[in-house]
């Protein structure tokens, strides 16, 4: 089992941005179907995947997230017609830049989950959590000011 720098069991922190219309509903369906996924996945509801500002993702890594996943409607199926296309292009650029900064590609992910895909949501989160566990803690962007304020 991976351990954190203090020697305790490593529990990765994963932030999932989910669009209100499909992916958040997919996450709900995973719940109502009683499909398990790791407790460390925390979902933030946004109206559309295109509402996810790259700054939110950077902020999550600054504040100690070990992985960030963004879920939206399937391409061509966006509630707002075209929002997920913007999101797809923005994240493609952002994730390349993050990789350059030392946030490995495995720590960031985009997945299209429809309201009917509860199982896909749960599977995706399980796989993603496994990947992040294998990668270990992400300290690359951690904001020293956040750490200091905790002391």
């Amino acid at each position: 089992m991976p351990i954190n720098e203090k020697g305790g069991a490593f529990n990765p922190l994963i932030v999932a941005f989910c669009c209100n219309w499909r992916s958040y509903a997919g996450a709900d369906l995973a719940g109502s179907s009683r499909l398990n996924y790791p407790v460390n996945v925390k979902v933030i509801r946004v109206p559309c995947s295109c509402r996810v500002n790259p700054l939110f993702i950077l902020r999550a890594f600054q504040r100690g997230a070990d992985g960030v996943i963004m879920c939206g409607c399937h391409p061509g199926d966006c509630h707002y017609t075209s929002g997920n296309y913007f999101a797809r292009r923005r994240t493609a650029l952002l994730f390349s830049m993050l990789d350059f900064l030392g946030i490995e590609k495995g720590r960031t992910r985009v997945e299209w989950v429809s309201a009917a895909e509860g199982a896909k949501f749960a599977n995706t989160m399980n796989q993603f959590a496994e990947t992040i566990s294998a990668l270990g803690e992400c300290k690359r962007l951690e904001d020293i000011r956040c750490v200091e304020s905790e002391i």
């Binding site: 932030v15 933030i44 109206p47 700054l55 939110f56 999550a60 504040r63």
Partner: peptide
């Protein structure tokens, strides 16, 4: 965006992390 402002979502990120 009202109801989902930058500050609101940032605050959620901060609280979760």
């Amino acid at each position: 965006l009202k109801g989902f402002t930058n500050l609101q979502i940032m605050a959620e990120v901060d609280a979760i992390c």
